[in-house]
């Protein structure tokens, strides 16, 4: 069994950084001082990711206000809208408003990547919103159908991926909670497949992972199995591993084995047992383990405590193929 581990979303900000950003908002510290804090915290996340043997490093994406703002603020066709609740949590995002066909502005997104990530692209993990989730959360005032918007976002994200590939990045994770929360059907499902075909062309030989969470992933599998990506992931806090459908292909399987909605640490032996069950059902080429949903639903300390479970699970599984 080949096992890879890594973050599947943003990491929480350390308490010291939280204090600094609060002080910044209250005018008690300078932007320069907070920038130093960000860089220090990003270095800490990278060091932790390396220490834990993660397949690729992310830097934690600590600066991003939410998964969509970097695009809403930098891409053409968008405005940033009102605060909206993010899925089942007490966290919010600014709803992107699509006013015209979306288009990337060269370099704008890349400049928002964590500096620690920009310094080492081949080992970096790029987190992007998947085209379906992006289309589902935005306020579409573009005059186009939702299906057309999914397709357009797939192409715009493909442009972004191409540019990032040129910078040397090789691992891309697309956050797609809405595929589980609201599985698309009919023409909308076809638009999702078309969106990912656009991405496939841009990805070339890069690793691509579609990660679902927020609801039971099982109903999404008929569609997930059609996506031309390296792996599809589900959150095992919401998805019953016994119900995973067998796979005709040997696509990689992502398993969200850390639950960021509880501070209760997972038992590595119990996680290993569940992973083995999933492996028996799907026979994937590679198993990708990580938090089921973005870890920033937790404070820093319990989040890092949970991450330490991952190498222990790899060990229990025999450590096959881990870097």
């Amino acid at each position: 069994m080949i096992v890879r581990t890594g973050l599947t979303g943003a990491a929480p900000r350390p308490e010291s950084l939280i204090l600094a950003t609060r002080d910044l908002d209250r005018g008690r510290t300078s932007p320069e001082a907070v920038e130093e804090m960000f860089q220090g915290a990003e270095r800490d996340v990278v060091a932790l990711e390396r220490r834990l043997g993660f397949e690729s490093i992310s830097g934690g994406y600590l600066r991003w206000p939410d998964p969509f703002r970097p695009f809403g603020e930098t891409w053409e066709g968008f405005a940033v809208g009102p605060l909206s609740r993010w899925l089942e949590t007490n966290t919010f995002f600014r709803q992107p408003i699509l006013l015209a066909p979306p288009g990337r502005v060269p370099g704008a997104f890349a400049s928002r990547l964590p500096p620690a990530l920009r310094a080492d692209p081949p080992n970096g993990r790029i987190l992007l919103p998947g085209p379906y989730t992006f289309a589902q959360v935005l306020d579409n005032r573009s005059g186009e159908t939702d299906e057309a918007v999914i397709h357009r976002l797939g192409r715009a994200l493909a442009d972004e991926v191409r540019a990032l590939r040129e910078l040397g990045f090789r691992t891309f994770l697309f956050g797609e909670p809405m595929l589980a929360v609201r599985p698309p059907e009919g023409p909308r499902a076809e638009a999702v497949v078309a969106g990912y075909r656009s991405l496939q062309a841009a990805l070339g030989g890069a690793t691509s992972i579609v990660w679902t969470y927020g609801a039971d992933g099982i109903p999404a599998f008929p569609l997930l199995d059609r996506l031309p990506v390296s792996a599809v992931g589900v959150d095992l806090a919401d998805t019953d591993v016994e119900h995973l459908p067998p796979s005709a292909h040997r696509t990689g399987l992502g398993l969200g084995v850390l639950d960021p909605r509880t501070t209760l640490a997972e038992d590595p032996a119990e996680v290993a047992r569940v992973v083995r069950t999933a492996h028996e059902r799907r026979r994937p080429s590679t198993i990708w383990l990580g938090p089921g949903a973005p870890l920033d639903l937790l404070p820093w300390e319990p989040a890092t405590r949970k991450l330490h479970v991952l190498p222990a699970v790899s060990q229990a599984l025999g450590d096959g193929g881990r870097r």
């Binding site: 929480p12 308490e15 939280i18 605060l83 966290t91 920033d296």
Partner: peptide, 17 residues
């Protein structure tokens, strides 16, 4: 109380277990 969780932007809430 376990620490702060971000609500949005630089706004946080203290979350307990």
């Amino acid at each position: 109380f376990q620490g702060h969780v971000r609500s949005f932007d630089n706004k946080y809430y203290l979350k307990a277990a």
